[in-house]
Design a protein around this nucleic acid. Sequence first.
DNA 1: ATTATTGTATTAAGCGCTTAATACAATAAT
DNA 2: ATTATTGTATTAAGCGCTTAATACAATAAT
Lengths: 123, 123
Amino acid sequence: MSWNLTSDRPIYAQLIEQMELKICSGVYPLGSKLPSVRELAREASVNPNTMQRALSKLEESGLLYSVRTSGRFVTEDKNMIKETKKRIAREQIQELLKKMTDLGFDQQEILSMLNDMAKELKK
Amino acid sequence: MSWNLTSDRPIYAQLIEQMELKICSGVYPLGSKLPSVRELAREASVNPNTMQRALSKLEESGLLYSVRTSGRFVTEDKNMIKETKKRIAREQIQELLKKMTDLGFDQQEILSMLNDMAKELKK
DNA sequence: ATTATTGTATTAAGCGCTTAATACAATAAT
DNA sequence: ATTATTGTATTAAGCGCTTAATACAATAAT
């Protein structure tokens, strides 16, 4: 899962989202040390300030913490990551159900379309 | 389905998205006349220029057309709306599958969570 | 001991988005 | 005939986002 940024939303918001995914999926394991701000910025092809902004927000939410001159680390709190994972999943599903329902699909159809597309991916 | 705007994305982009939903779901039926730019802007609490911007984009994509001093109308092309509906549905499902897979859920779990939340909504 | 690397902070510039204030021609409504 | 309403266009201002260029203290690496 590499960085994927579009111009239709603020970059720092996309960085937060993708960083959360990386943390929850174990790309950056529990308690592990992240690459430096500058390195991460280089990876994502953004300005260090922009990456810093995203990481600061993730500290506010508790997923990361930084040690002044040593580096930045993923939280040790296994449960917090688990909860974040659940939160993202719930939000994503909610959004899907809302949008699909607005479009006029009933739950039968939604499940059926999802099943089809999931099968398609399996191949 | 009323207007719901957040500050984490450009307003005009959200207007396009929600306008598409309104068209596809029949809030504004095939070939019907829309409220005026000014009226729509008032409804959504945005500047007329911003609403105009969104509507112009929807004209580019063909979902709307305008008659200079008479007003703006939904396309007569039933098939185009159907295709738009499909496109939105596909995109939304793709995004869900991608994100959930990144999070480490397998297809079994995705379907099960979706089922649960769908049932929850039914109540 | 010296050097390199941390996270962090600041300033200035450019850009797109949004709003506000107008204006205009065409035509629908009266 | 007059008035109100269309979509459309323009200009200026303010704001947030992003980048670039620096700088600094603390400390890890050498």
